[in-house]
Design a protein around this nucleic acid. Sequence first.
DNA 1: TACATCATACCGACCATCCGGTATGTTCCT
DNA 2: AGGAACATACCGGATGGTCGGTATGATGTA
Lengths: 215, 215
Amino acid sequence: MTAKLDHRQAGVKAGTAELGSSREQILDAAARVFATRGYSDASINEIAAEAGFSKGALYWNFSSKEGLFFALLDERIDAPIRALFEMTEAAPADQTMEKQVSRGLAAVLEQERDLVLLFHEYSAMAARDPHLREKYVERNVMLRAGLARAFEARVAALGAKPAVGAEEIATAVIALADGLSIEQLTEPEVVSEELFGQILSLILDGLAARAKGCI
Amino acid sequence: MTAKLDHRQAGVKAGTAELGSSREQILDAAARVFATRGYSDASINEIAAEAGFSKGALYWNFSSKEGLFFALLDERIDAPIRALFEMTEAAPADQTMEKQVSRGLAAVLEQERDLVLLFHEYSAMAARDPHLREKYVERNVMLRAGLARAFEARVAALGAKPAVGAEEIATAVIALADGLSIEQLTEPEVVSEELFGQILSLILDGLAARAKGCI
DNA sequence: TACATCATACCGACCATCCGGTATGTTCCT
DNA sequence: AGGAACATACCGGATGGTCGGTATGATGTA
């Protein structure tokens, strides 16, 4: 809700190159502070200071702390994931997919560490608050459905009925991505760039092997 | 630290069956409150009230809010996982392992929802606090090593060099379990009892198929 | 046994602090 | 002038932690 319009468009102050509207600057700061402190321990004051503004500016652009956090989730997590999967719809489901997806995930994890932490907080809060859970689940359902269609296409080429349903595969693959994201936060060195793709390939090979009956 | 002995042994007051020491009762209450509110939003007062005690009793048994939380993580998460894997050491790595492990995970997820939420909070805090990360990583390293040995035994039977290292497989399997645990918190209906085991089998079959060269 | 002493386990009022939110003041642009 | 876009002072409430007090039992001893 409250798809507020920005109040001004990227003005330039003397000598300093402005990076987006103050609303966007506050969102950037909020992402950093929420990520490093967690939702409850992140204070409005610190976010405003980190953005280079005062509390007044924050409450001018957002209705409340909760409103700021939800805007952040909407614009930095839900929207990008939706956009990603609208792109994926048009893309082919060939054998190079695994490597590309794996590299893409690794890139997001390496940069954008804050977003991973935010996503972590998101799911934790969604697990507790039924109201927030709705939005969280809605996006996840769409994601899973998209992934399931992709797997369906790959598995259909095998000609035999798959040993595990596409929806289940999709569920597990999302879980794998989430889990690797989290592991990478505490042990970056054990999650290689290729790992996600390798496991994906192993799962698909396992399906293929069973379809061929060579196991 | 402070492996405090219980102060009294399960006395029985008139008519009411005591369920463990007051320390244990406070830990139980803390598990519930921390799980439902999150660490920061859980108040000492609520935990004490939930346990049926006052704040004084809480601070008698624990040094601080942080101390209470860490004790909870130590005794209800780290210790059980360590114990589980010391048992696993002696167990055989036969083909029925997948099903058993999957059922075991499902059972924990179905009951003990609080522990899953606690674990979620644990990893989030470990990702932010380097001090807490040490303990978190230490346990995870041991877990991964144990799993890797189990996979090594299974894969060695194939006779060929595996396409993916045992350590990497273990990393991915832990990630899968973590991810499924989290998904189950928001969408219990999509995570079946058998899913974890099915994916495990698919991965192992993928390895076997490649070793046999039939892919 | 009877009394004094001490430790344990707990209570609950209190304090200093901090935080989200608001109300009001100030500046700048048009 | 007049409103948009901030800054600042302030308020009420909640929270973690402290501290003096106390009931209950254990221990020593005469």
